[in-house]
Structure formats: C-alpha cells, structure tokens
Amino acid sequence: MIFEVIERSLRQPNRVIPVEALLGNCDGSRMPDVIASQLTPAISQKLVEVCPTAAFRIEECDGWACLKLSYGECIGCGKCFEPGEGAVVAAKSFTLCGNPKDQLVRVWDLERRTEIAPLRPEPGVVREQIHRLLGKALNVRQLDAGSCNGCEAEIAALTNPYYDLERFGIHFVASPKHADMLLVTGPVTRNMAEAVRATYEAVPAPKLVVAVGACGCSGGIFAGSHAVVGAVDAVIPVDGYVPGCPPTPAMLVTGILKVLRRRIAK
C-alpha cells in the first residue's frame, strides 16, 4: 500500500555519498594506472600488443621513447594488468574526467621511468569550488547517439539516493530546448548523426557538451565500423570528456562538475 511504501522510505537512513568521496573515485571502472618505476620497454611493448583499442602507444617525444596512455580510448577491459607485471594496476583514483581531449593522455619516459608532465594533484579546495557552484542550476539533456546502453544505466543511477545529482542543482530535462548541457553517449552512428546535429542545434547558447564513455570519447570498441560516423566530436563540438566503459556514477559526477567549474572560471 502506498503509505506503507512511504513510511518504509522515511525509515531509511540517508544514503547520499558526500561529494568529497565521489570526486576522483573510480572504483568499479578498472581504469588502469601506470607505476612509472616498474615500467620497462619490454613491458610497454606488451601493453601495446594486448590493448584491444590501441589506448597504449609507444611514441618518440623529444628524442626519447615514451609510453602514451590515451584514456579516451580505454575500455577498462583490464587486459593490461597481467602483462603489466606490476607496472599497470587498477587506478585507485582517476581525476581526468571532464578534461578536454588533449588532457586525457598521460605520457611516461621509458628511459628515465618517470611521467612526463605528471598529473597535478587536484588541490584540496574542492569544497570551496563546490560552494562556488551552489546557487546555480544546470539543466542536462542526455542524448544517446548510438550507445550500448551501459552509459545510460550509469547516468540513470545519478538520480538514485546515493548520488542524488539534484543536490548540486543539476537536473535532467526532457527537451534540449531547456538544456544548458548535453551529455552525449555512444559512438555516433550513421543513423543517429542527423538527430545528434538537430538536438545540438536545439540547445540554446551558450551550450556545454560532455562526451561520455569510451565510445563517446573515441568510438571505443566500435571505432572504424562502417555503420559508425565516429566519436561525438566528429559531429558536434565537445567541451569535456568522461572516459570509462561505462564510466561509474562517481566519474560522471567528477566530469560534469569539472566542466561546469571550468566554464564558471572562464
């Protein structure tokens, strides 16, 4: 009966996960992290060979052989952990969500076993930054450009009592005409390309676009298919990227808030 359901709900404890515990959290995503001190050219070669989406590459930078890891292409399959022999582990945290495309890549110098331009630790001013976002509302329209629905499942989870996106003033809307931000999933298929453009056009300026998931960032496992046009940025301009296959709700929160913070700082 309806009142019993409500009564039961009221007796539930508050499940909401504090924002500090969400930002940078990537549990359950199997995003790889590289331990630079353990890295050798032989291991790097193996990583390049096992990666099914060519997220790992060996390239020459400034005359040195370097290992590049492009997170936009990574589908979190974990196939690199074993041949990584301790040099590749499941990341404990992942702070690149929401970055522009050129900042989704990490590079390690194989000669010196160090990371080139390592990640700057996210300053501990998150709470202050979040406070600056408060008092502003963000309307988000989710757009599936051809996804497998894995990303949809995780985006839908953002409204459950653990993530409760509404607490940040972020609200999912039904029409692109009501939206400030498009959250676009999937590789853009041939059959969806026109609808993706039309949806983008319908969003009032200034519009923010976030590409979600390995497919949205790079085409993922579907890159190169005859039925796929490409990643989201092959069709519309993108402001920030959230890697992962699928990205976890915590990664999505991290990415959305980062794109928003960057916008406000402008």
Binding site: G28, G150, E154, N160
Partner: peptide, 21 residues
C-alpha cells in the same frame, strides 16, 4: 533504484566491475 544500486556496489567490491564486464 536504491536496492539496485546496493547490488551494483556489492559487485564492484566483489570483482571491481559494477556490471560484471
């Protein structure tokens, strides 16, 4: 959705993937 999420988080703790990928 709360009950569902509890199972996804339990999966994540068990095998580091929410959907058994």
């Amino acid at each position: 959705t709360r009950i569902k999420e509890s199972l996804l988080q339990a999966s994540s703790r068990c095998c580091n993937t929410r959907y058994w990928r």
